[in-house]
Design a protein around this nucleic acid. Structure first.
Lengths: 259, 259
DNA sequence: CGCTGTCTTGAGCTTGTTCAACTCCTGTGG
DNA sequence: CCACAGGAGTTGAACAAGCTCAAGACAGCG
C-alpha cells in the first residue's frame, strides 16, 4: 500500500489573468511534495515502511479540511505533525486579554504542530482559512528507538531553534516598527514564503481576513484597511478582495526596513 | 542651580519623594546550583566525568564577567551553553532599523545560548548588566554518541519548546497590550523568575537601565519612567534606582491582564 | 435578489513619542 | 572624604500614530 506517487499528483494549472479586477482566476494553492517541509520525513517513512512495520495510519496524505474547520484545539494531546498541502491555516492562541490572538499563518508546504511535541499538548488552535488539505504524520506511536525517531529528534531541534529565532525577530519587528512597516514586512514575508514553495505569482493569495491580519500585526482592522489603501495609493501594491499584487517589491522592502 | 551640597547623606526624602529609600540589605544575586537550569546537565556531566573521559574544559564553573562585558557576539560560532550564576545579562539583537534591540534578560539560574545550537551561530549578542558570573558547558566537543548527548538532546528539546511558547506569549503580550500593561507584566515576570530561583525579596533587583526596559517593551525610555511613576502613585509599587518593590501583586496582575 | 458578514471610510479621542531642559545617581580622582 | 563630571533618570509641552465608534459599500451565498 504505497501510494506515495498517486496521492501526490500534479497540481491543476491556473489560468493566468491580470489583477486590478476584484474577482480573480484562482491562484495556485497546492504545494508539490518535493517542496514540502515534511517531505524529508515523509520520504523516509515511505521508503522504510516495508522494513520497520510502522503502525497503520502513521502517514495520512492529503486529508481534506473545510474552511474554518479545526485541525486541533489548544491543549489537545499531541499526536501528529502536519504539513499544509493545499490552502492555508491560522494559529490562534487563547489569550487572557483579547478574545483571540492570531499567532501565525501556515502556507502550503509549511509544518504545523511541532511545538506541541515537547509539552505533549498543542499550544494553540489551528484552523483552516479556506477549503484546504493537509498531510499528517503520527509521532506518538513511532517505535521508541528507530532511525525515524532519531532523525526526527535531530530535525525537531533544528526546527524549534529556528522557530525561537523567528519569534524573536518577529517580536522585535512588531514592537519597534510602525503599522505601515509591519504591514509591508508582512506582505513581503508572505510573498517570500510563497516563492520558497514555488507558488509565487504577480498576485499572491491573502487568504485571511483583515481582522486576522490585524490581530496578527497588533493593529485594529480599520488600520489594516487604511494602511493597505495607503500602500496602494503609493503605487506599491494593488489590492483585491483577498489577493494582493506587489508592484514594487524594492520600495516595499525599503519601507519595511527604513529607520 | 544645583546646590544639594551638604544635603546628600542618608537624609530621608520629603514626602512625595521619587525614590524609595533603599534600606534593605543587599539583594541576593547568586543562584544556588540546585536551583539552576543547567544543573541537571551539569550534575550529569560532573558525575560521569570519570567514566566518560570528557575533554578538558567541558564544564567551566562560575566564570566572572564584568559589567557590560560580552559573553558572545551575534553571529559567533556556537560552542557552549551558559547558565547565569550571579548577576544578570541581556540579549541584544542587531536590528536593521533601531540601532539595537533588547530581546531578553537573563537572571541567575537561567540558560543562555541554546538557540544557537541548530544554526551553529549565536543569534544575538549577550552582555552582562552588572558584575556577574556564569557557568559554561561546551557542547561542540561532546562525543557524538553518548549518554550525555542523548540526555542533552532530550533536555534541549524541552527547553527549546518552552522557549517557543514563552516567546509566543511574549509577542502576544507586547503587541496587544498597552504600555502600562506591558510594564506591569514585565515586573511580574521578573518577580516570578526571581521567586523560581529562590531570589525573591520584598524588593527585587532591576539591573537593567530604563532604556533597556524601553527597548525590550517597545516603548520610549521617557514612557517607561512615566509609567513606573504612575504605578508608584497608584501605590502598586515602589521604585528605587535599580530596584523595585511590588506592594500589591494582585492589583498589578489584574492590571496586566485586564480586558 | 436580498441577506449577512467583511471591508471601507470618516471624525474625535487616547496613547505614546519627540525634543528639550533639568535633576539625580554613581564612580573617579584629588 | 569631598567635589566633580558624565551618564541615567525625570518632567513638561507639543505632536503624531493608531484606536474607537459609527455609518455606509461591497463581496459571497442561499
Amino acid at each position: 500500500m504505497r501510494n506515495h506517487t498517486s496521492s501526490c499528483q500534479k497540481t491543476p494549472r491556473q489560468s493566468g489573468r491580470k489583477f486590478h479586477t476584484p474577482t480573480q482566476a484562482p491562484l495556485i494553492r497546492t504545494v508539490e511534495c518535493d517542496k514540502c517541509g515534511l517531505d524529508p520525513l515523509c520520504a523516509l517513512l515511505a521508503y522504510d515502511e516495508g522494513d520497520v512495520e510502522l503502525p497503520e495510519g502513521t502517514l495520512l496524505r492529503k486529508q481534506p479540511v473545510s474552511a474554518s474547520e479545526r485541525v486541533f484545539r489548544a491543549g489537545a494531546p499531541f499526536h501528529s505533525v502536519f504539513a499544509v498541502k493545499t490552502g492555508a491555516f491560522k494559529s490562534v492562541m487563547p489569550s487572557a486579554t483579547t478574545p483571540e490572538q492570531v499567532v501565525g499563518f501556515h502556507l502550503p508546504g509549511e509544518l504545523i504542530g511541532l511545538e506541541g511535541m515537547a509539552s505533549g499538548t498543542y499550544p494553540y488552535t489551528v484552523s483552516a482559512l479556506d477549503d484546504a488539505s493537509i498531510c499528517a504524520l503520527r509521532i506518538d506511536n513511532l517505535p521508541e528507538t528507530s532511525v525515524e525517531r532519531d532523525k526526527l529528534t535531530a530535525g525537531i531541534i533544528d526546527l524549534l531553534s529556528s522557530e525561537v529565532a523567528f519569534q524573536r525577530g518577529l517580536a522585535a519587528t512588531l514592537i519597534h516598527q510602525s503599522g505601515e512597516q509591519r504591514l509591508a514586512a508582512f506582505l513581503i514575508d508572505l510573498s517570500e514564503r510563497y516563492t520558497d514553495r514555488g507558488l509565487a505569482n504577480v498576485e499572491i493569495s491573502l487568504p485571511m481576513s483583515r481582522a486576522d491580519i490585524a490581530s496578527f500585526l497588533g493593529l485594529a482592522p480599520e488600520t489594516v484597511t487604511r494602511l493597505l489603501t495607503r500602500l496602494q495609493n503609493s503605487g506599491l501594491i494593488d489590492i483585491g478582495y483577498r489577493h494582493v499584487a506587489i508592484n514594487n517589491i524594492d520600495a516595499l522592502t525599503a519601507l519595511a526596513s527604513s529607520n
